[in-house]
Design a protein around this nucleic acid. Structure first.
Lengths: 233, 233
DNA sequence: AAGTGGTCTAGACCACTGA
DNA sequence: CAGTGGTCTAGACCACTTG
């Protein structure tokens, strides 16, 4: 039925996905094995493999050696989100990015930072608090701890000029990270900085980064009112 | 230097990523072309291709035909997030999921729903408001519009028993969607439903789904206090 | 132990796109 | 139009896992 056509892996992915969506393959059904599908579609097994591994990655099917390929019954939505580089994001909106540092100190990192890093002992880190503006309107407030032991040069940087995130991305890339998003009511100090009312709801993006198991930086980004993260699939 | 070893695409990905992280390949540098890398590592071009296309997908490098492969200078963080199936998520926490429908009506969808669907004309849809509980504590409030023209059977379902999201996932899978996350202060009615104070900050997840260009459902999930979305890379 | 998906190879051709 | 990445193939072997 499906021969005589040239199938790319992308077309295969969509074709099989459609068959799953329209019930040709129902939830929990077992799909034919790759070799049989290859014959059915008249293509090589590698091409089937490529399509199916995408579907597996999307959470649409579950693939196991020896077990075969099944349609996942209650599929979750998986989305790739991009945490933008702040200055780029602001520039894309046609606005001017400026940046101001409010606080710089070396201090023992608070418990939640140590916990997030999974570092048990109290450790001194560089504490940086700063604000990003878009056309002089507060855009994001950034509260950051930097483990300067992993990158001593950070102590010599003049962060009144240089943006901490971008300096770090350039000078101490990370290999692993965690990310968490939640909502909070703005406490008094942040409300004042962001020019919003106390208790105004803000989206907080919290990120921990490591480089080969060494903590690099922990940052909380307190977004401006109305900020949203978007994606599609 | 790197021969005599058996390289898998995963090892290659990590090895090349490390070289980018440690500056062997600096931002904006051009990497050797796939064929040369294949020779350098003593593997086939397909294997290099697999590793590099992963790095490209991660946003670490930029690949162009004829242009070659470059290290992206200011790399964004890209994360795969999973929007869980509510009942599963609650079960995973060892709690009991229950569900209650508060409102069911057919009405003209409000402007923001029509706009999100990119449907210009006023359209009647099924409006469902419900709450999910974890051990009888409000967990998520769900405000949903269903385009019943795309799935008439939805009008006959007894949503006092059946969970709308899961019924839809089973009976009208979607092919395309958008997702948006932001924070709001709980309005009076939602605060009351969720047993929180008015203006308490909550994370809202808003999703529009289509099936082959036909709107299926628009849903806003108002999460409980303290909810967070997590991911890692 | 056998079956199925995961990976690797060597080679071919195609599709962009930059010079 | 020439160079580079993207895809496809046919076949081989490996790794996991289930019966």
């Amino acid at each position: 039925m499906t021969q005589s056509k040239k199938w790319t892996w992308m077309m295969l992915k969509e074709n099989i996905h459609t068959k799953i969506l329209n019930g040709t393959y129902a939830p929990d059904d077992k799909l034919p094995k790759d070799a049989d599908l290859a014959q059915e579609y008249g293509c090589s097994r590698s091409t089937i493999q490529r399509a199916m591994s995408e579907l597996s990655h999307m959470g649409v099917v579950d693939r196991r050696r020896k077990g075969g390929t099944c349609v996942v019954p209650l599929r979750e939505t998986r989305a790739m989100i991009t945490i933008p580089i702040i200055s780029k994001e602001i520039a894309q909106q046609g606005k001017t990015h400026t940046y101001k540092i409010l606080h710089r100190a070396i201090a023992i990192a608070p418990a939640h930072v140590l916990a997030g890093f999974k570092v048990p002992a109290a450790t001194k880190m560089l504490h940086l608090q700063s604000v990003h503006f878009a056309d002089n309107v507060p855009y994001i407030y950034e509260d950051r701890w930097v483990n300067f032991k992993s990158i001593p040069a950070v102590l010599d940087v003049d962060f009144s000029v240089e943006n901490a995130n971008e300096w770090l991305v350039k000078n101490r890339p990370y290999s692993d990270w965690t990310l968490s998003m939640h909502a909070i009511n703005a406490p008094q100090d942040i409300a004042q900085i962001m020019h919003i009312g106390k208790d105004h709801a803000i989206l907080v993006i919290e990120r921990f980064t490591w480089h080969q198991n060494t903590p690099v930086t922990a940052v909380k980004l307190y977004t401006h009112s109305g900020y949203s993260l978007n994606t599609q699939g």
